[in-house]
Nucleic acid binder design. Structure first.
Length: 874
RNA sequence: GCCCGGAUGGUGAAAUUGGUAAACACAGCGGACUUAAAAUCCGCCGGCGCAAGCCUUACGGGUUCAAGUCCCGUUCCGGGCACCA
């Protein structure tokens, strides 16, 4: 055996061994329990980043652990290969997104292989291949048939200079990222999937997901946002151009606070609302305001933080219960796409309405009282919005609480035929149309005679041309006559293909099911999915806690309703890995945006505690700002794991990643500490060498360890290792891998200090080092493989059984209890392991520390926590 | 703004889920070995105090024999907010 630890050699040999034995190739096998371990697949952005290393190491630790536990383990890998960055790279480098993407996949695949992950590479897939996205198109057509997919209008960010639709990410401070032009909102047609039809089930089935973190379920529940309220109408006789009352003379609104209806002092409608457009005709100021509302972001965060503005329309509607006239305002904070595009204004009991009313001097009328608290118009107070009060100044409803008031008011509105209780969801339907090239083509043909016609199944897939190079001025498919021109499947006349592509969330909504098939060309999923699904353990970033996971759950339910699968939830257990953060350095140029710089381009000043106090660009001394944020290509703050692997080897990179923090916690990147992991693995190797050269030879032909009475120091050492094993197994169950790593370090510390003379000692060390190698193997599979086979423990550590602690090794005669007096630690107490409570109390009361700190007072109470401590209160 | 998390030594973190706060490491300091350096090994390492001891888990309250852990309030940091993936 080599006496020096040479990771490059060891890792190459181990990986070759796994390749040649096809160690990770798996098949459905009904005779064995299965474990489907899935990590979120990477976007092929160029090279792996630390988040990937963290994610896939967690998956690999779990996969290898379960394999040694006897499970049939499937761990696949693939590529989420469509998306915007490929187009951005194309604009920058004039390379087709397809070439850029496939090159990146080749490179990143080599990186993944060099990390030694136990992946069944025969199941690799890339979502940008026609074999895969054909099934996006096929199931989309099924959804159209069933009415789950439909065409309607959507609001998008429009860049008036580039004449193109912008992603939210491409809108910076309200301006287009390339042109700097003020972005406009524009309504265009697009396809929607009716996820809202599944809202009830998506919410209800969260209860079944016992293997999901509570916080993720909570986030999903809040996102779906079920609220029960009342939808009702203010009546009016405002006539439109056709002489008829607009919307049948009804202004519909939805509210969850019907109990405050008697406090309505105005109504607010969206800028696109028919009443707003009508009023604007004779009102230049209002028309200008509506025009202004068209600018700005469509993002909810921007909507919520922007200055609330409004303008009166001069139109009035009738309050349905008081008969009073209520003025209609246009508000920039009212969204046409939510509910009916109009809200009632109750400034006394809604914080946003309160601010609006104060700003425009609208009346504020208190209609709910909480206790005898005094209502003041000076400033908003928390209790104004409370549901715990009773109605006041509300006529017949006075004295009613929230529930009773809502019921009574809903009943009265229903009697007039202008209102009813209604369940409202916050969840909106999923718009999947993207006006972008590098995505899955939507399989629709537009014909002047027949309208929008689905592509017949036998013409699928609609193949995306792979040689286009976007230039930022719009979808290059518009210039591809060979793609555009097609005969109408209905009438045969010349027609045009749809050029919109699908949201990339479509691709990632079902890839886990495809991995679990035999990749047949004639079926989306085949019978093998029945064996592997559902996914036993899904691992990925917390940033996907809502959208990706919700869409995947929705997609599974649609597939079930189409008879394709029999399960209703895709992921049984979910581990949401924390983000890997790093400092990003930038300066804000005029005209908005942020220019990011690599750490190698700047000088950083730090204070005595190592906190960053400032940064300057090396080149010209420009003062930079910094923020702690996720590692990302666009922020130039990613750390390439490649140099880590090359310098120290995959095992060091993996071990350090697992040791640095528990999986669910955010990890602030730092280079320090990697050396420590490397040092540890070198020590493991050296101990292996020592064992081979000096210890193993002492073991006799007849083994003596079983049943032997060990000398005290040897028994203590063996007990320590088995205790650490017990702890490591417990922590593996909790998926807390950082303490598993530290347990292996403690084991090595103990091994190095253990008695090593004599046959018995050599046998104990053999047993304990064997435990260490197996506990270490999911974390650092290469060195574990090399030592296991090199030291003659067995042929292949993958086939070794997972170790369990032995009761005989754990047993002890005496235990130590902590002694507290009045809750403060004052000493320790050694008692027999089986000591009775009375005996412990007596020993504690007689202890010198008790006598000293009670200072003569009698003990009022003695608390004994078995196996832990005694607390004497006096 | 709304929803969800987090905060413990110089640093990453641990604490058997209410029971010895700081395990295991990193960095630092001191020592051994060496002509020297690297590597390796040994020791010290939250604050105050000569000591007995006292204080310390972002901040302010509370519950308890006992609180990093539970409850109430505050601050700061991170994630998501529907076209980044």
């Amino acid at each position: 055996m080599q006496d020096k630890y040479l990771p490059a050699d060891i890792e190459r040999a181990a990986q070759q061994h796994w390749d040649s034995t096809e160690a990770f190739r798996v098949h459905a096998d009904a005779s064995r329990p299965k474990y489907y371990c899935l990590s979120m697949f990477p976007y092929p952005s160029g090279k792996l980043h630390m988040g990937h290393v963290r994610n896939y190491t967690i998956g690999d630790v779990l996969s290898r652990f379960h394999k040694m536990k006897g499970f049939n383990v499937l761990q696949p890998m693939g590529w989420d290969a469509f998306g915007l960055p490929a187009e951005n790279a194309a604009i920058k480098n004039r390379v087709p997104p397809a070439k850029w993407t496939y090159d990146n996949i080749d490179y990143m695949k080599q990186q993944l292989k060099s990390l030694g992950f136990a992946i069944d590479w025969r199941r690799e897939l890339a979502t940008c291949t026609p074999e895969y996205y054909k099934w996006n198109q096929w199931i989309f057509l099924r959804m159209l048939e069933k009415g789950i997919a439909e065409r309607k209008t959507q609001v998008v960010n429009w860049d008036p200079v580039d004449q193109t639709v912008l992603a939210n990410e491409q809108v910076i401070d309200g301006r287009g990222w390339r042109t700097g032009a003020l972005v406009e909102k524009r309504e265009i047609p697009g396809y929607y999937l009716k996820i809202t039809d599944y809202a009830d089930e998506l919410l209800g089935d969260l209860d079944e997901l016992t293997g999901w973190p509570e916080r993720v379920k909570l986030m999903q529940a809040n996102w779906i946002g079920k609220s029960t309220g009342v939808r009702f109408a203010f009546q009016h006789d405002i006539a439109g151009d056709d002489g008829q009352p607009i919307n049948d003379g009804k202004l519909w609104v939805f509210t969850t606070r019907a109990d405050t209806i008697m406090g309505v002092t105005f109504c607010a409608v969206a800028a696109e609302h028919p009443l707003a457009l009508h009023a604007a005709k004779g009102n230049a100021e209002l028309a200008a305001f509506i025009e202004k509302c068209k600018h700005g972001s469509v993002m909810e965060a921007d909507m919520a933080t922007m200055e609330k503005e409004g303008l009166p329309t001069g139109l009035f509607v009738t309050h349905p219960l008081t008969g009073k006239q209520v003025e209609v305002w246009v508000g920039n904070y009212v969204l046409m796409s939510y509910g009916d595009g109009a809200v009632m204004g109750v400034p006394a009991h809604d914080e946003r309405d309160f601010a609006f009313a104060k700003k425009y001097d609208l009346p504020i009328e208190q209609v709910v009282a909480v206790g005898d608290k005094a209502y003041s118009l000076d400033a908003w107070q928390e209790w104004y919005g409370s549901k715990d009060g009773v109605c006041v100044n509300s006529g017949k409803y006075d004295g009613l609480g929230y529930d009773a008031a809502v019921d009574a008011i809903a009943t009265d509105l229903a009697a007039q035929g202008i209102g009813e209780k209604k369940v409202q969801w916050r969840l909106r339907d999923w718009g999947i149309s993207r006006q972008r090239y590098w995505g899955c083509p939507i399989p629709i043909i537009h014909c002047d005679s027949c309208g929008s016609v689905p592509v017949p199944d036998d013409q699928l897939p609609v193949v995306l041309p792979e040689d286009c190079v976007p230039d930022g001025s719009g979808n290059p498919l518009h210039k591809r006559e060979d793609f555009l021109n097609v005969a109408c499947p209905c009438c045969g006349k010349p027609a045009r293909r749809e050029t919109d592509t699908m949201d990339t969330f479509v691709d990632s909504s079902w890839y886990y099911a495809r991995y679990a098939t035999t990749f047949g060309k004639d079926k989306m999923v085949d019978d093998e999915t029945g064996y592997w699904m559902t996914v036993d353990q899904y691992i990925g970033g917390i940033e996907h806690a809502i959208l990706h996971l919700l869409y995947s759950r929705f997609w599974t339910k649609v597939m079930r309703d189409l008879g394709l699968v029999s399960y209703r939830e895709p992921f049984a257990h979910l581990l949401t890995q924390g983000m890997v953060l790093n400092n990003a350095f930038f300066h804000k140029p005029e005209g908005g945006g942020k220019n990011y710089y690599w750490e190698s381009e700047i000088d950083i000043q730090k204070d005595a505690k190592g906190q960053i106090t400032g940064a300057r660009l090396k080149q010209d001394g420009t003062v930079l700002e910094h923020e702690l944020t996720t590692m990302s290509k666009s922020k130039n703050n990613g750390v390439d794991p490649q140099s880590l692997i090359e310098q120290y080897g995959a095992d060091t990179a993996r071990f350090f990643m697992m040791f640095a923090a528990p999986p669910e916690q955010t990890l602030e990147w730092s280079d320090a500490g990697v050396e420590g992991a490397y040092r540890f693995l070198r020590r493991v190797w050296s101990f292996g060498h020592l064992f081979a050269s000096e210890i193993r030879g002492q073991i006799g032909a007849q083994r003596q360890l079983t049943g032997a009475k060990l000398p005290e120091d040897l028994a203590a050492f063996r007990r320590e290792i088995h205790l650490l094993l017990k702890q490591a197994n417990y922590d593996l169950g909790k998926q807390q891998f950082n303490t598993v790593a530290s347990a292996t370090m403690k084991m090595l510390n103990a091994l190095e200090k253990a008695p090593r003379q004599g046959a018995l000692a050599a046998e104990v060390i053999e047993e304990c080092f064997g435990i260490l190698l197996r506990v270490l193997s999911p974390l650092t599979p290469h060195i574990s493989h090399a030592l296991w086979s090199g030291l003659g423990y067995g042929e292949d550590i993958l086939k070794a059984a997972w170790p369990e602690p032995l009761d005989a090794a754990l047993a002890q005669d005496e235990i130590e209890l902590m002694l507290q007096v009045n809750g403060k630690l004052r000493g320790a107490l050694r008692v027999p392991a089986e000591a009775a409570k009375d005996a412990i109390e007596a020993a504690a009361l007689a202890h010198e520390a008790t006598i000293k700190f009670l200072e003569g007072r009698p003990a009022k109470k003695v608390v004994v926590v078995p196996g832990r401590l005694v607390n004497i209160v006096g």
